[in-house]
Amino acid sequence: MRLNRTKIALLAAGSAFLLPAAAVAGPTLDAIKDRGELNCGVSTGTSIGKSTLDDQGNWTGFEADFCRAVAAAILGDGTKVNFVPLEFKNAFTSLQSGSVDMLARSATWTLSRDTEFALEWAGIYIYDGQGFLVSKASGITSARELAGASICVTSGTTTELNLADYFRANGMDYTPITVSSPDQSIANLESGRCDAYTNEVGGLASYRLGLSDPDAYTILADVISKEPLGPVVREDDQQFEDVVEWTRHALVIAEEFGVTQANVAEMAATTEKPELRRFLGAEGEFGAKLSIPNDWAVKVIQTTGNYGELWERTLGSKSKANIGRGVNTLWSQGGLLYAPPVR
């Protein structure tokens, strides 16, 4: 009796450490299906065009919609997403500890993160690079003119390291003004606390809109780094990683074949093209190979549209951010978007 009590006490004491262990040990995909919901880590809701929380409490933006696409692929319903807003400095730890299933949060893929963090990048959904946002009144036209400047940067990001690399490589000095949220950096830039704000160019374009007078600011043409952004998952569930990776591929394949949100249902029913029939689940058991329904791609495209539609709606010409696609166009049009065949 006494021994039992001791055991119970021990278990209670250890439960704080045991619980997350139980969550990460089981395959993530099964956990999502059981839960009927995808826990998706996004930004704190101010990244216009990527993940924005509007005044009605809805999440919009490219990365928020990517979460919906993954939920649609697994659960057949793009609304089954629990958005978890995370500051960048907490994002990786939250994923590692199992409090979210994946991140769609402008996380740059690097060798150290890929190996030491026990995380996997399930492909790249935006090819970005690091730039500088400056006020037009400052008269700065090139990053080389920033010697001696104070530069706002978000803590714990690759941009903080690239910034140091760039100034060191060019033999220039600078003062980093390091804060944990982009909003603070924007406030610092606006008040003149720093001369430039550095982040991914895509991010800068959207944060520029958060300024009280966006037209008084401009993004310098210099791009000082490669910033491949993609969804991040844990290493413990290869199958879930495949699903996330193929969700990204589905968006690209759909654009390639001209499958859109409007025509996807009709195409799935009528198309004669063998590759499209396999992709849309009319032929073969390709969903089953991923342990998800065979019509997964149809659900994905019905939820978000193809890559082009998704971009134009959230970041491109139909959005406030109005960012050009740059290299984020199909390989057949000279861009970097390429997807392996469904076969």
Binding site: P20, A21, A25, E116, L161, E235, D236
Partner: peptide, 25 residues
């Protein structure tokens, strides 16, 4: 230790001798 090993994460204080690569204001 077991959970870290299960996640394929390595522990240790070796990182303290690695180059940090960022600046302080």
């Amino acid at each position: 230790t077991r959970n870290l090993a299960a996640n394929g994460m390595t522990g240790g204080f070796g990182f303290l001798w690695q180059e940090a690569g960022f600046a302080m204001s």
